[in-house]
Design a protein around this nucleic acid. Structure first.
Length: 574
DNA sequence: GCCGTTTTCGGCCCGACTGTTTTCAGTCG
């Protein structure tokens, strides 16, 4: 059972308990545990074996016992009894915007509604408006919300799509009269791998004007709500966008608030209370009266006795404590990257020549680039035979001469780890290469022991320098392979093999939690674009986002080193 | 249900918006 699956069960428990009318704090406890489980870079079954489940923040006696039962028996008595009591179909009813636990419970108890289709039928029959506190408008709103939900397939969209939309909208907002600052906030600013909606923040003196212009943007398909200081709209594709407008002298607290995460904000507010302060998006209030205005985010953190915390860390996963202890890491930044160690050309499945890729890398300021095309077993991807691999070396040398010394070209390969664990080139061929990445593209659903051993075998091969996209997941379409990453990390650390953070937005593999864990146990990482076209080198920022979310300093990332250092490092490995 | 320089019990974040209301509950972020 994966951490994700276990977290999902606890979220379902939280929803059902909330509908049942249980103490909200008990509900919050289950939600917090679920979030915390998701953020673990380790499998719960490993932690269970070591008796360390209770070390997970938000997991105490009761929840640890429930995880234990789930892992041991595959079931949980408490959850099953709860599901008998409260129909689980109501969890989907909660997803309808405008419906929370109170209304869901009322629909269930007073109308016998247990699923979304049943709720839709009841609404069409005009039964909802008969309930106290409900009217015809609520009924219509619920029907519209159900329709929207049906139209929109995916709940969350990838950062690779969301981030550019957010940046474009922010740019449009900046051009409106009276707008001093416009910034994306929310999970997009924290570089989460997927986002549920976009949050945008504007500093302006007259909010009405900005909000009026915003809801009239071409992209806006419908206005979901609009008040004096904020508006919520749906843009093309069903993506929800919220805009907050705040006065410039309160922009810092507003940006801090809108950036979240919710868990981080709760942590800060608790800290504020300890200091006789009350924190909101408007600033800080002193309990004895008086207010602290925060024009900049730094002002908020300073008032709480903390250094500014980078948005990528704001998940309440130890960053507040680390800030308090002045031990926040100096995170790797995009400008720290000096080269890219994973890219394809038209020799295999890339779309551009070696030369075009080299030029593009150089334009982006890289001082080295490893060309790493596929190996022959990947026929569909035009993998290189040994003969073609050697020809490619000539071509790389030719391009190197032509472009001169400002960009060092390396010849590598992304070598397939075959289903039986063998590598796709013989050792003598691997020895000719400057850099060897070993990756899995086939037989990704092998049982854990088998697929883990494939990776371990590759790591033990002295010619292998790096493991590419270690889990093989594709966001939204393919789950991670069942790899025992803890063993892989430990072997990689022992053999000095680098683990990739693949920056393709649908991969982001390793993810934040695993990257953090890998660095913690002594692995070196690399942020690679796996570019197949010249413009894809720009995707590196998504890899950097993941690395920063994984608390990585520049030191943890091989390609923050200079060309000479990387070449020296590779030679040193033989 | 968790947690602890207010510690083993009693706390547990804050405000806007909406729709239904004559003062507020529910939802949302």
């Amino acid at each position: 059972m994966t951490n994700e699956e276990i977290a999902h069960v606890f979220e379902a428990i939280a929803d059902l308990l909330e509908i049942k009318g249980e103490s909200i704090y008990r509900v919050i406890s289950y939600r917090r545990a679920a979030e915390s489980i998701r953020a673990q870079g380790r499998r719960l079954e490993d932690l269970q074996r070591e008796g360390r489940l209770k070390e997970i923040p938000g997991v105490g006696e009761a929840i640890a016992a429930k995880i234990d039962e789930l892992l041991t028996t595959g079931k949980m008595d408490f959850y099953e009894r709860l599901a008998d009591e409260v129909p689980p179909g109501l969890i989907d009813v909660l997803r309808i915007s405008g419906v929370g636990p109170k209304k869901a419970a009322r629909f269930w108890k007073e109308l016998g509604v247990t699923t979304v289709p049943e709720l839709e039928a009841a609404a069409r029959a005009g039964k909802l408006r008969e309930l106290p506190g409900m009217g015809a408008r609520s009924e219509t709103a619920i029907l519209e919300s159900i329709e929207r939900m049906a139209r929109r397939q995916e709940g969350r969209i990838g950062i690779g799509i969301a981030r550019p939309i957010a940046e474009r909208l922010a740019e449009k907002l900046r051009h409106l009269p009276g707008v001093e600052v416009a910034e994306p906030a929310g999970s997009v600013r924290r570089w989460r791998e997927t986002v549920g909606d976009l949050d945008l923040l504007v500093a302006a003196v007259s909010p009405e004007e900005v909000l009026r212009s915003f809801v009239a943007f071409d992209e806006v398909e419908r206005v979901l709500g609009q008040g004096d200081t904020k508006a919520s709209v749906e843009v093309v594709g069903g993506l929800r966008v919220q805009l907050w407008v705040h006065p410039p002298d309160r922009f810092g607290s507003a940006l801090q608030y809108a950036t979240g995460s919710q868990a981080h904000n709760v942590g800060l507010r608790e800290r504020a209370l300890e200091r006789g302060l009350s924190l909101s998006e408007h600033g800080l209030k002193r309990s004895e009266g008086g207010e602290i205005l925060c024009a900049r985010e730094e002002d908020v953190y300073r008032a709480l006795g903390l250094p500014w915390i980078p948005p990528e860390l704001r998940e309440n996963l130890g960053e507040i404590e680390a800030a308090d202890a002045a031990s926040l890491p100096t995170l790797v930044g995009e400008s720290d990257l000096q080269g890219d160690l994973h890219a394809h050309t038209d020799w295999s499945d890339g779309r551009a020549t070696v030369e075009a890729m080299a030029e593009a890398a150089r334009e982006l300021g890289s001082s080295y680039l490893a060309i790493t095309d596929h190996s022959p077993s990947l026929g569909a991807l035009n993998g290189l035979s040994v003969a073609r691999l050697r020809q490619q070396r000539q071509e790389i040398d030719r391009v190197q001469k032509r472009i001169g010394g400002s960009l060092k070209l390396l010849q590598g390969a992304e070598v397939e780890i075959l289903a039986d664990g063998h590598l796709d080139y013989e050792d003598e061929v691997l020895a000719e290469l400057d850099l060897v990445i070993a990756s899995l593209h086939v037989s990704l659903r092998q049982p854990q022991a088998q697929i883990t051993e494939r990776l371990m075998g590759a790591i033990r091969n002295p010619h292998v320098d790096m493991i590419g996209h270690p889990t093989g997941r594709l966001l939204g379409s393919r789950a991670a392979s069942d790899v025992d990453l803890e063993s892989v990390f430990s072997a990689a650390a022992d053999h000095g093999v680098v683990l990739e953070i693949n920056a393709q937005p649908d991969r982001l593999d390793l993810n934040d939690a695993y990257a953090r864990r890998a660095w913690q146990v002594g692995c070196l990482l690399a942020i690679n674009t796996d570019a197949h076209r010249p413009d894809e080198f720009r995707l590196r920022r998504y890899g950097v986002g993941m690395a920063r979310r994984g608390w990585l300093p520049g030191l943890a990332v091989l390609n923050t080193r200079s060309a000479d250092e990387v070449v020296g490092w590779l030679r040193g490995r033989g």
